[in-house]
Computed example of a mutant assay.
Amino acid sequence: MFLQLALAAFVVAAASVTPLPDAPAPAAAETPPPCGSDHRVDQTLTNGARWQMCWEMRTIEGLTLSRVTYTPKGGVPVSVLRSAALAQIHVPYDSGEPRYHDIGSLGSAVIPLTDGDCPGGERRLDQVCVTTRPRGHAYLKDGFGDPGQRRSLQGRELVMLSAYQVGWYAYVAEFVFGDDGSITPRVGATGSLAGTTTSPEYGWPIGVGRKHFEESHSHNVFWRLDFDIQGKSRDVVEQYDFPGNKTKKRTLEKTVLTRETAARSRPTRWWRVVDPEVRNTDRHPVSWEINNTDTAQYRGPADERFTRADLYVTQYKACERLATYNAEPRCAESVDRYTDGEKVRDPVVWVNVGFHHVPRDEDADPMPVHWQGFRITPRDVTATNPYRAE
């Protein structure tokens, strides 16, 4: 693994769209996203849900999505994200060294994709795979003895995939868009183990006997998500907690994050980005929920304070691009320093997901993929089941 810091300035233009009406209106998605055909994605899934977006391969962050819009079946387009990209892959080893920051020039580390990497899909410039695949049950309801009342449906998802060779690791990066309106960013690490030898205190025996101990390490993956729910002017980030451990009752506690914040994952804690003026036909505000419970919550030393939180909320600044080693001279170096209490009017959400990799014999070359990521779920975007919405 290596670190390259050859930053090039890039600013993503803000989307400008109008709020959803209170009653359904015809979908206005005939106007394509403002990008060339090679970089435009417009996919309608089998249940009628439609995803539209632009993509580009940035020198630093690699695959970057912009102008992401979701149209539920029978509904109107809802813009969700102005941009989404990886912001860092921090890899500290258990013995204390080395401590890699693997994002520096992912765009120049792209692994050219083959048809085998993109089954049933389309390779764009051999850099990105655009495909769809089954995602399991969308729902299942028993008919309680009446076969005519039984309901079951399989769901599908749109996948945007790219891969990068960083030292001995290959990273497979996916943005997965469900037919239920969900978004799942995730990264899979594969390729080869480092081949380093350490003591039993810091590793696991690999190979014959107990002569070689492969060192354990963490992968702390950061994503940068610039939410724009029908424009940037009203979006708010809220934190939800449900205290009541070891009691019969649980209460709901809402905290509005009006200023830049570093937040930590806890059981039953989640966040949402909401536009209070964009409402579904039940007149409930449209939002997207962020759940980051599948994280190892690595906490590093004082000079790695960026690892001390699992979600950061910051005010949009074009030069705040990476979670660490941000080399833009106009901005601070790491995401923990971006959160200085500034009032948030146009929120950017940074999500940190940790995975502690303890090697095993099964990781022999080529190493099977181990995945880490989080989930973004629509909350009140439609007033009914998105598979049955009309």
Rank of each mutant, 00 (worst) to 15 (best):
G104N: 06
H356M: 04
R40G: 08
V128C: 09
G120H: 07
E56W: 09
Y70V: 04
R50N: 11
R151I: 11
P301V: 09
G120C: 06
A87R: 08
R337Q: 15
Y93M: 04
T293D: 15
S79F: 01
G203F: 01
G181F: 02
A29K: 03
V274R: 15
V176D: 03
G191R: 04
P185T: 01
A23E: 09
V11I: 11
T384F: 00
V278K: 00
Q149T: 02
Y298S: 06
Q165T: 09
N385V: 01
R234P: 00
G207N: 14
S199M: 05
I290V: 14
P366T: 02
N47Q: 04
G354E: 10
A163P: 01
T258Y: 12
T261N: 05
V381E: 03
T18H: 08
Y338S: 03
N291R: 15
Y169E: 10
P112A: 07
T307L: 06
S199V: 14
P77N: 06
A302H: 08
R250E: 11
V76H: 15
L257Q: 10
H356T: 08
T46A: 11
T31Y: 04
K249W: 10
Q239P: 00
E320S: 11
G354S: 15
R264P: 02
D42E: 13
A263V: 02
D115P: 01
V274Y: 14
W270D: 09
P301Y: 01
V335S: 10
G143Y: 06
L193W: 07
A194C: 06
E289V: 13
Y139C: 04
V273S: 07
V166I: 11
G107E: 01
D226S: 14
A263E: 06
D336V: 13
T258Q: 13
M57I: 12
D346M: 05
A87F: 00
D94V: 05
A296W: 02
R124Q: 12
V78I: 12
G231A: 06
E157L: 00
G244K: 08
A383N: 09
W288K: 01
Y338H: 10
A323M: 14
L5E: 09
E328R: 11
S108W: 03
D336L: 11
P200W: 06
L225R: 11
Y387Q: 11
V274A: 13
G75L: 02
A364C: 02
E253Q: 12
V68S: 13
Y100D: 03
R210K: 15
N385I: 00
A28G: 02
T59Y: 08
G354M: 03
E342I: 02
G188L: 00
T190Y: 08
E260H: 03
E174D: 12
T18M: 07
A302G: 01
V313H: 12
G181I: 03
P19A: 09
E304N: 04
M367K: 11
A87C: 08
D126C: 01
E238M: 13
E342T: 14
R330C: 14
H217N: 09
Q297H: 05
W223G: 02
D346P: 09
D294L: 10
P33T: 06
T132G: 00
